[in-house]
Design a protein around this nucleic acid. Structure first.
Length: 292
DNA sequence: CCTCATTCCTGCGGGC
DNA sequence: TGCCCGCAGGAATGAG
């Protein structure tokens, strides 16, 4: 599942392979892949044809490719999206959704996405920062990310710490896998109330988030089910280093206690029940949050 | 304004 | 063997 490290791996690959090249032809194979581009596929193609890609940028899990027109191609990989640079002679992938051909020939750029949670759009005038993602927070690898601002914002939230890590308007780039990994390192249970975090605790948590993301980036990103591959079609391998995610029943690498999985927001959370104890039930009038 | 549940999608694997 | 169901999950959306 592409989170910040995987998307950054794709960004770097794209920057190498498509920056500076001029788009010759656009083929939209599945309308859902450009559903965020409301005017439709003909308009999408018209805005791209003949335009030069200047660069490849990223904020959190979003990518955008500034064009010489001042517009940008805005993309999100969703769960299963891939941006592949392939020779035109390579057979079409089963889930090929969009193809861009260039004036200088190979390689072409293919957006391939099995589950179609991802997609592409043209952000008009979005070369600098697409308006569509202006509400997304900077990510923790961004030099302008404010650590103090993050600590203040998370403490002001009236929610649980894992939900906050997944809130892209608070901190971007973190998904379910790295949220669980960071919480394990920080020895915090995901249901702890954010308002009870001290400033130092918030700073420590942020440090663990950064560590997890940068280590994963060094490894080329996580690939869990081979759906994610980087721009050249090569899987990442950070999954070897995961401490809790997907390890239900296996011993905690810190204390040996079996890792637990529990339902969370239509997905799963993995944690060590010994290292990451649930918070004590809050006193007062609110309902209990504990389960046996 | 803030928080939260719901919804989109497809392939795979387990259970019967 | 084959069918059904649950699961994987980011983020827009609308409800409250």
């Amino acid at each position: 599942m592409p989170e910040l490290p995987e998307v950054e791996t794709v960004r770097a690959g794209l920057a190498r392979w498509v920056a500076g090249r001029t788009i010759a032809e656009v083929e939209v194979r599945h309308p859902r892949a450009i559903r965020r581009h409301l005017p439709g596929s003909a308009h999408f193609a018209a805005l791209l044809t003949g335009r030069k890609i200047l660069d490849v940028k990223r904020r959190g899990k979003y990518l955008w490719l500034p064009l010489d027109s001042g517009d940008a191609i805005l993309g999100h990989l969703g769960m299963s999206g891939q941006l592949l640079c392939q020779p035109a002679s390579a057979p079409d992938e089963l889930h090929l959704r969009v193809r861009l051909r260039f004036t200088d020939g190979d390689p072409e750029l293919r957006f391939v996405d099995q589950r179609t949670f991802g997609g592409l759009a043209v952000s008009e005038g979005g070369a600098d920062l697409p308006a569509e993602i202006a509400h997304i927070a900077r990510d923790p690898m961004d030099p302008e990310f404010s650590d103090a601002g993050f600590a203040a914002a998370i403490r002001a939230k009236r929610t649980e710490v894992k939900r906050a890590l997944l809130d892209q308007t608070l901190i971007s780039g973190v998904g379910n896998i790295y949220a669980d990994e960071a919480l394990w390192r920080a020895q915090l249970h995901g249901v702890r109330p954010t308002s009870a975090l001290t400033k130092p605790a918030a700073a420590r948590l942020l440090g663990h988030v950064r560590d997890v993301l940068s280590e994963a980036l060094d490894s080329g990103g996580t690939s869990f089910d081979a759906l994610y591959v980087n721009v050249n079609g090569e899987s990442g391998y950070f999954d070897r280093s995961l401490n809790v995610y997907g390890r239900e029943g296996e011993p905690c690498r810190r204390c040996g206690t079996p890792i637990r999985r529990e339902a969370f927001m239509n997905r799963s959370s993995y944690y060590c029940p010994h290292c990451q104890p649930r918070p004590r039930v809050r006193t007062g009038s609110r309902s209990r949050t504990n389960v046996p």
